[in-house]
Amino acid sequence: MPQTNRQTVYASVTKRIITELEQGRVPWVQPWGTPDVDTPLGLPRNGSTSKAYSGINILILWGAAIENGRRTQNWLTFKQALSLGGCVRKGEKGTTVVYADRFVPKKERVKAAENGDDPQAVAFLKRYTVFNADQCDGLPENLFVGASPLSERDPIPHAEALIEATGADFRIGGDKAFYVPSQDYVQVPPQPAFRAQIDYYRTCFHELGHWTGHETRLARSFKGRFGSRPYAREELVAEMTSAFVCASLAIVPTVRHSDYIATWLDLLREDDRAIFHAASLASGAADFILAFQDESDSGGMAA
């Protein structure tokens, strides 16, 4: 894709996110749970391959599903709908998602072979159109099965099991929630200390989002003081990590640090690729945490 087209994609998606934030809506958590929205919780998936979408595509597809009141988080290309025995209804408008990758041009391979150097890959960003299963006819019924929201009773066993399975040094006590990179531990207040007990789990997965960034795990940078751009970036990653994990566990996401919104807006206005980068890192962090579900399901502990 030409450079100008890539810039258009980054700018258009970032502009949409900025508009949402300016209007007081945080696109990775709202408006889940409102009475007029029937969209089920969960991460968006490709209905043909069952593969979960990641990074910025989660925000794009969540937004499209909620805006249009879709009944499912399953998405398909036009051809995939046909391959499953269905079809996109006439007049339905698709949603544009993006695919980022790298390739080595032929000229670069030839040049590298002549000089004995390593060929240099070139980044590209491709757009393609998908449709929610709700926009199609004739698809298998399993594509319309959504996650059921959990009650807010405490505890939530599978959330507790996942936290334990991570093997994180997870301490409960005090009146503040935080992660200490230098000592690699998480601390959160006792669950009854939260006004809404469901917030305990949202907070746990926010702090575990930070925990994934330790140098022995996903190795993100923790440099930057409160209010700085690096600090805002890491908080944005942790916020979205919590939202992605909570959605996977059928826990309604929320904003833990609404006072950061102004800083996030500054960050996005300054760099139209920031939300892409943060969403990608958040997907990686959420995947890292959710990979421990196998341990929690089997009753084992991670090393």
Rank of each mutant, 00 (worst) to 15 (best):
M1V: 14
Q3M: 13
R6P: 01
T8H: 13
V9T: 13
V9D: 13
V9E: 12
A11V: 00
E22C: 07
Q23I: 03
R25C: 09
P27I: 08
G33L: 10
G33P: 12
T34K: 09
V37S: 13
L41D: 00
S48L: 06
S50K: 09
S50L: 07
S50M: 07
L59G: 15
R71G: 15
R71C: 15
W75M: 08
W75I: 10
T77R: 04
T77N: 08
Q80P: 05
A81H: 13
L82D: 11
L82F: 07
G91E: 02
G91N: 06
G94D: 06
V97F: 03
V97D: 05
Y99T: 08
P105L: 06
E108V: 05
R109E: 12
K111I: 00
A112W: 00
A112I: 02
G116L: 00
G116C: 00
D118S: 14
A123L: 14
F124M: 14
K126N: 05
Y128G: 12
D137K: 12
F144A: 04
S151H: 11
R153E: 14
D154R: 15
I156C: 14
P157Y: 06
E160L: 10
T166W: 03
G167D: 09
A168Y: 00
F170D: 08
F170C: 03
A177R: 12
Y179F: 03
Q183N: 14
D184Y: 11
Q187W: 02
Q187L: 12
V188A: 05
A193N: 14
W211Y: 09
H214M: 04
R220A: 08
F222Q: 00
G224M: 04
G224E: 07
G224N: 08
R225S: 13
F226E: 10
G227Q: 02
M240L: 11
V245D: 02
V245A: 01
C246F: 03
T254C: 11
V255W: 01
W264I: 03
L267K: 01
R269H: 03
D272S: 06
S280R: 14
A282I: 04
D287H: 13
A291D: 11
S298C: 10
G299K: 11
G300D: 11
M301H: 05
